[in-house]
């Protein structure tokens, strides 16, 4: 099958006050349709930079990114982003935040009633129907992140990009949202690229874990295939041999091969 996203010899160089800074160099990756890929690596290695390149929020200084056969030249609704800090507009209700994206993608083709229906369905999918009319300031951090996810899914993107979607949440909420995300991904068969710091999260959610070397000039160090059947259940996985093997492989990469010198 032809990959949905092709990342070819991509390099990213930032111009800083102290001169050019090479964040990424020679990154090559292919993402297939329906695949869940997570990016893991030490802080500052360039995970967000790579995700922003796929999103089109920044353009590479080297190489090319191709999505669905076309070069990525800027952001677009077919590549929805769930931001780390949810980025909901505080003056719109949760419903209107989701509606804004829905309207943009389907507004030309569908009636208002249908658009509202889509919005409602997305909000129900993340179990937030009870808070749809609230403003983001009135709901908890976990709920905001749920709405951010609903906004992204409601746009029915070709690919969903998430930058540490649960990074700011406590462990319990994070686990609940991970389970929710597993359900949503199962239902929609979405293609997902997710940045994470969390080894368990990476193994639990993804088909492949892409491990980045330390920057500067970070690149892909290893790619791990997670051969676990879906849907996955965190409790029964705890002593699964494949799960333990994957976990071990990532930990080894992060804490032996790429041990971060004390920063």
């Amino acid at each position: 099958m032809k990959p949905l996203v092709q990342i070819e010899h991509v390099g990213m160089q930032f111009d800083t006050k102290k001169g050019p800074f090479v964040a990424l160099s020679d990154v090559n990756l292919q993402i297939r349709e329906g695949e869940v890929v997570s990016l893991i690596g030490h802080s500052g290695c360039g995970k967000s930079t790579l995700l922003n390149l796929i999103a089109g929020l920044t353009l590479p200084t080297d190489g090319a990114l191709i999505c669905n056969g076309r070069e990525i030249a800027g952001p677009g609704p077919e590549r929805a982003v769930v931001f780390q800090n949810h980025s909901l507009l505080p003056w719109l209700t949760c419903f209107d935040n989701v509606y804004l994206g829905v309207e943009r993608v389907f507004g030309g083709k569908e009636s208002k009633a249908k658009l509202r229906e889509r919005t409602q369905a997305a909000i129900e999918m993340v179990h937030m129907a009870h808070a749809a009319s609230k403003h983001p300031g009135e709901v908890s951090g976990g709920m905001k992140q749920r709405i951010g996810i609903a906004r992204a899914f409601a746009m029915e993107p070709k690919i969903l990009l998430m930058d540490e979607p649960f990074g700011a949440l406590d462990a319990l909420t994070r686990a609940a949202l991970q389970d929710e995300l597993i359900g949503v991904m199962q239902k929609t068969g979405a293609t997902v690229v997710m940045v994470t710091h969390d080894v368990d999260e990476a193994v639990l959610l993804s088909d492949r874990v892409v491990m980045l070397t330390n920057g500067p000039a970070a690149t892909i160090g290893e790619i791990l295939e997670v051969n676990l059947a879906k849907p996955r259940n965190r409790l029964s996985l705890a002593d699964d041999a494949e799960y333990i093997r994957c976990r071990q492989a990532i930990l080894e990469f992060l804490y032996q091969k790429q041990l971060k010198k004390a920063a």
Binding site: P75, A80, V81, N85, M155
Partner: peptide
């Protein structure tokens, strides 16, 4: 910038 990024991703 986050809000502007939202605008760009949604292509408003």
């Amino acid at each position: 910038q986050d809000y502007m990024n939202v605008a760009r991703v949604l292509n408003l």
